[in-house]
C-alpha cells in the first residue's frame, strides 16, 4: 500500500496532469490555438514540408530531362550510384574540409573583431558599420571581388607579394592555393556575422563582474578566460550553429571564384548538386545528392542541439 506522502505526490501529480489536459481539451482554447497555428503550419508545409517530401520522392526516381523518357521509380539506384562516384566523395570531402577550416577560423576572427568593437571607443558607429559591411555584401559579389584580388596577373594580392620581393602565386592553378584563397574569402565574409552575435553577447555581461575581478586582483587574461569566455558560450554556440549549417551549404564563393577548379579540386557538394540538376538535368541523381546534404545538415544541427541541452 502506498504511504500517505506517496499518495499525496500521486494526487498532486494527477491534479497537475488534469489541469494540463483540461487546458488542452478546453474546446474554445483548442480552437483558438489551432487557428493561431494554422497559418504558420500551412506556410511551413507549403514551403518546407512539401518540397522536402517531393525531393525525397524524386530521389527514388530515374528522372533526367535529357533522356526524353518519363520518370520511373528506381528505388535506391541513385543512392547506389553515389557510392562509386569519385566526384561525390571529393565534393563531400571538400565541403567538410571547408567547414572544418572556415567555421573555427571565422569564430576566432569574429571573436577578435567583437572584442575590439566592444572597447570603449569615442565613436562607436564607424567601427560597427565597417563590421557590418562584409556581412551585408552578397556572397557572389564577395566571390567575384576576391577572384580579382587573387588573379595571378592583375590581382592586388600578387602585386603586394611582388612588392615585398616574393614571386607571385598562380592561386587558381593549384588545388591547395585555390582552396586557401577560397577559405580566406569565406572567413573574411562570415566572421562579421560571428562578430555581430558575439558582440551582442558581450554586451549582456555586467561590468560589475569585471570590477569585482579587478578588486580580487585578476589580470586581463584571467578576466577573459574566467568571465568573458564562459558567459559568451551561449552566444558562441548559436553563432556556430548558424555558421556550420551555411558552411555545409557553401556554393556562391567557390562557384564565382574557381567554378570548382582546377579540375574538381575546389568543388563543393552544393555545387555538384547544382551541376547535376541545372547543367546535366539529371533531377533524380541531383535530388539524391540533395537528400544526403539535407541529412548531413540535420546531423550537425542535432549534435549542436544536444550540446545546448547538455549545457542548459
Amino acid at each position: 500500500m502506498a504511504t500517505a506522502s506517496e499518495t499525496g505526490i500521486i494526487t498532486a501529480h494527477r491534479e497537475g496532469a488534469t489541469k494540463w489536459w483540461t487546458r488542452f481539451l478546453d474546446p474554445s482554447e483548442r480552437t483558438l490555438a489551432a487557428l493561431l497555428l494554422a497559418p504558420t503550419a500551412l506556410l511551413l508545409s507549403l514551403i518546407i514540408v512539401y518540397p522536402v517530401c517531393r525531393l525525397v520522392w524524386t530521389s527514388f526516381q530515374n528522372l533526367s530531362l535529357t533522356s526524353g523518357l518519363p520518370a520511373e521509380f528506381a528505388g535506391l539506384e541513385n543512392y547506389r550510384l553515389m557510392i562509386d562516384d569519385p566526384v561525390f566523395w571529393e565534393t563531400t570531402w571538400n565541403t567538410v574540409l571547408i567547414t572544418l577550416i572556415t567555421v573555427p577560423g571565422a569564430l576566432l576572427v569574429g571573436l577578435g573583431l567583437a572584442l575590439m568593437a566592444n572597447m570603449p571607443f569615442r565613436l562607436k558607429w564607424p567601427v560597427r558599420l565597417s563590421l557590418l559591411i562584409p556581412w551585408a555584401l552578397p556572397l557572389s559579389f564577395a566571390g567575384l571581388i576576391f577572384a580579382w584580388f587573387f588573379h595571378s596577373e592583375y590581382g592586388v594580392v600578387n602585386d603586394v607579394l611582388r612588392r615585398v620581393g616574393i614571386e607571385g602565386i598562380i592561386w587558381f592553378n593549384s588545388a591547395n592555393w585555390a582552396f586557401a584563397a577560397i577559405c580566406l574569402t569565406i572567413i573574411w565574409k562570415t566572421s562579421s556575422f560571428m562578430a555581430l552575435i558575439i558582440l551582442a553577447g558581450l554586451q549582456t555581461i555586467p561590468r560589475s563582474l569585471y570590477e569585482a575581478a579587478e578588486v580580487d586582483g585578476a589580470g586581463r587574461f584571467r578576466q577573459f578566460f574566467e568571465i568573458t569566455l564562459p558567459l559568451l558560450k551561449p552566444a558562441i554556440v548559436v553563432a556556430l550553429i548558424f555558421r556550420t549549417i551555411t558552411a555545409l551549404q557553401t556554393f556562391d564563393i567557390p562557384f564565382t571564384m574557381t567554378r570548382g577548379g582546377p579540375g574538381t579540386s575546389t568543388a563543393t557538394l552544393a555545387m555538384y548538386i547544382h551541376q547535376n540538376t541545372v547543367d546535366f538535368l539529371d533531377l533524380g541523381y541531383g535530388s539524391a545528392l540533395a537528400v544526403v546534404m539535407f541529412l548531413l545538415s540535420m546531423c550537425v544541427t542535432f549534435v549542436y542541439l544536444r550540446m545546448i541541452r547538455a549545457k542548459g
Binding site: 592553378n173 593549384s174 588545388a175 570548382g260 577548379g261 582546377p262 579540375g263 574538381t264 579540386s265 551541376q275 547543367d279 546535366f280
Partner: peptide, 14 residues
C-alpha cells in the same frame, strides 16, 4: 564536364 575538368586539372598540374 568529365573531359574539360580533366584537361584543366592536368594543365594545372594537380
Amino acid at each position: 564536364e568529365i573531359i574539360r575538368t580533366t584537361v584543366n586539372a592536368v594543365l594545372a598540374g594537380t
